[in-house]
Design a protein around this nucleic acid. Structure first.
Lengths: 218, 218
DNA sequence: AAAAAACTATGTCAAATGACACACTAACAA
DNA sequence: TTGTTAGTGTGTCATTTGACATAGTTTTTT
C-alpha cells in the first residue's frame, strides 16, 4: 500500500477518452489558453500542439509517477493539485513542490536522461491532466525550429519561475512566505493538509500551526 | 566609468585581431570542453559556437551586472568565482548563487524578457569570462534547429541542476550542506568570505562559525 | 606605513524551533 | 456503524538560532 493509504488506485490510460470531438474541445480550452500566454502560435498551431496531448481524469490519491520508475511523460495539469515529493536519508517525506494547475509537471531529470526517478507525485484533488509522451515530445522538438524554440521557451520560463522561487525563499521569512501562499494560492491552502504545506515551506507542522494561530487571533 | 565598473575591459575584435589564432585556441580550451559534456557537436560546430563568444578577463571585485540594468548578455565563466546576490526589503544582501566556473551565468529573467534586473553579480576572484550577447544568442537559436535544440539542452540542464539544488536543500541539514560544499567546491571555501558562504547556505555568519568550529575540533 | 574598512571569533541572552506527548477530530474502509 | 488511520491542536522542554556586543585580525585604501 502506498503512503496515501487505502482507496488509492493507479491511473489507467485510455479509460477517460470516450469522445474524440469532445476531447479536442476540452484540450483546446485549457491547454490552448495556456499556450496563449506565450503569444506566438496561430490557432492551427495551437490546435496541432494541443492534440499531441492525451486527456485524462484522475481521482484524489492517484499516483502520477513513483520512485524507481522512469518518467517518460510530461503532465500538463489543467485543473487540480499535485503533491511532488521524495524521501530523505531518514525516511522522512519531503515536499519538493505543490503543483497548482494550469502548469506542467514531470521529473525532468528522469524524463530528460532516462534515469529512474527518486521522486513521486500524487494527485491531492480530482484532477484533469493532459499527458505528452516522450516519443511525441521528441518528434515535436525535432520536427521544426518553431516547435523547438517554443519548447525552449517553456523550459526557460519554468527555470525563471524556479529561480524566482529560490530568490523568494532567500529574501523572505517563513511567515511572509506562508501569508503569500494564502494570498496567491488559496486552492492549496484549502485542499492540502497542514503537514504537507509545512513540509513545502520547509518547516514542521507545529511551527506552521503556531503561525496559523497567530493569524487567527489577529 | 562604464557599466562593468572599474578595472573591467572588453576584448574587442580589434584587439584580438593581433592574435586571432591564440584567441581561438583559448576559447577552444574551456568553452569547447564544456560543449563536449553535451556530446552532440562536431569540431567545426564547436569552433563556430565558441567563436560567438567574446573572451574577457576581469579582476576580483568587478561587477558583471548590477541592479537596475537590463542584462543583455550571457556569461560563460571559464575560470573564477562570481557572487550573484540581491537586496531584500530590509536592505540585507542575500546571496542567490555562487557560480564556480565552468558554468553559465546571467540574470535569465532580465535577459529573456528585457526587464531591469533586481540582482547584481560581482567577481570574487580574477576570472576568465566568455560573453555572448543577446543579439548573437537570438541569431543562433533562430538560425538552425540544431542550435535551438542545443541551447534548449543547456537551459534544460540548468533547470535540472536547479531542481536538484532545491531537493538537496529540502532533504539535508545545514551542516550536511556545508560539509558537502567543503567536499565538492573547495575553491568556494578557499576564496569566499564566511559571511557570503553563510548567506549562500541561508544562515547567519555566527551559526556557520559554530558549525566550522565543531569540525575544527573533531 | 598608517588609517580605515571589512571580516572573524566568541560570549551572552532572548526568541524560535523541533521533538515528544497526548487528546481530540475527520476521513474512510469493512 | 464501528474500528482504524491520518491529521490537528496544544502544552512542555531541550536545543538551535539570530541579534548584539566586542575584541582581535586581515585587507584595502590613502
Amino acid at each position: 500500500m502506498n503512503v496515501y493509504g487505502r482507496g488509492f488506485f493507479r491511473l489507467t490510460y485510455g479509460a477517460s477518452i470516450c469522445n474524440e470531438q469532445l476531447f479536442n474541445l476540452n484540450v483546446m480550452k485549457t491547454l490552448q489558453n495556456f499556450f496563449d500566454t506565450f503569444g506566438e502560435l496561430s490557432s492551427d498551431e495551437k490546435f496541432y500542439l494541443a492534440n499531441q496531448f492525451e486527456e485524462t481524469h484522475v481521482k484524489k490519491g492517484t499516483p502520477l509517477f513513483e520512485e524507481g520508475e522512469v518518467v517518460d511523460r510530461i503532465y500538463f495539469i489543467g485543473e487540480g493539485i499535485l503533491h511532488h515529493f521524495n524521501y530523505n536519508d531518514f525516511g522522512e517525506r519531503k515536499t519538493l513542490d505543490l503543483h497548482d494547475g494550469p502548469c506542467f509537471c514531470t521529473d525532468l531529470h528522469s524524463f530528460s536522461e532516462g534515469k529512474r526517478s527518486e521522486e513521486s507525485c500524487v494527485a491531492l484533488s480530482d484532477s484533469t491532466l493532459y499527458v505528452l509522451t516522450k516519443a511525441r515530445y521528441n518528434a515535436l522538438i525535432n520536427s521544426n525550429i518553431k516547435w523547438s524554440n517554443f519548447v525552449k521557451g517553456i523550459i526557460e520560463r519554468t527555470l525563471i519561475k524556479m529561480l524566482d522561487q529560490v530568490k523568494n525563499t532567500a529574501n523572505k521569512s517563513l511567515e511572509e512566505r506562508y501569508l503569500e501562499l494564502v494570498r496567491t494560492k488559496p486552492k492549496i491552502i484549502q485542499n492540502v493538509s497542514l503537514r504537507v504545506i509545512a513540509s513545502y515551506l520547509g518547516t514542521s507542522r507545529e511551527t506552521l500551526h503556531r503561525i496559523r494561530r497567530r493569524h487567527l487571533v489577529a
